[in-house]
Design a protein around this nucleic acid. Structure first.
Length: 219
DNA sequence: AAGTATCA
DNA sequence: CGTG
């Protein structure tokens, strides 16, 4: 059987994924979510009808340029009081929309590919980036669990800034493209990272937007 | 604390 | 365009 035929029959898109270790414990799965991207972007829009994208305030008094919503049992929020996970959307008073089972399975599969068995995400933060939007250098440290983080990118390309455990550690700049998945955990779990301002453009699936999903275990 | 602006 |  030809390699091409094997790939066409393979129900696991990851088998065709090019893997690149960013660091000990941090794996980039290039294009891993490409085959399901259209369906997942459709789901993002459905979720956003229930819990709309909104820009949150930071404790320092600024406003984030990235628009956010969440799904799953708990969702990440920021306001003048700080960062936290909450079970209900503060804007609607309703629980966050459920995490689609297909998303959960994708996140579990990606985590396993990076060596993290038993990942049970209870939260998915959905970030919407328009051109110019950015995410400053930060650590993900609002979770009580030290389970890994799984990040899935759709739409416009981004430059992922990948640093170290100290804010001043040198940064690597890694392009993240439509369908790319990054997993970080273990000794890389609290690495500083960010997203450079998104360049103007249009993507065939998402239009003038980048979406990023981050799956986490919060408890 | 995941903000922006500005300069060397 | 990058860092501090």
């Amino acid at each position: 059987m030809t390699r091409q035929r094997e790939l066409a029959l393979d129900p696991q898109p990851s088998m065709a994924t090019r893997r690149e270790w960013l660091d000990d414990g941090a794996l980039l799965l290039r294009g891993h979510a490409g085959a399901v991207a259209v369906d997942m972007v459709t789901e993002i829009k459905r979720i956003a009808r229930l819990s709309p994208f909104r820009r949150m305030a930071t404790p320092g008094g600024g406003m984030m340029s990235v628009a956010m919503t969440c799904c799953g049992a708990r969702g990440w929020c920021s306001d003048g009081q700080g960062y936290r996970y909450v079970a209900a959307d503060p804007q609607t008073g309703q629980p966050w929309p459920p995490m689609p089972a297909t998303w959960r399975q994708l996140a579990i599969h990606a985590a396993r590919a990076a060596g993290y068995d038993g990942f049970e995400p209870d939260s998915c933060l959905i970030n919407g980036y328009r051109p110019g939007a950015r995410m400053g250098l930060h650590q993900d440290r609002d979770e009580r669990s030290d389970a890994p983080v799984v990040s899935v990118s759709f739409g416009l390309p981004a430059i992922f800034q990948w640093g170290g455990l100290r804010r001043t550690d040198p940064l690597r700049r890694i392009p993240l493209l439509h369908g790319d998945v990054v997993v970080w955990g273990g000794v890389s779990r609290y690495v500083f990272h960010g997203i450079a301002p998104i360049r103007a453009g249009t993507h065939a699936v998402t239009g003038p937007c980048r979406y990023n999903l981050t799956f986490r275990r919060t408890l």
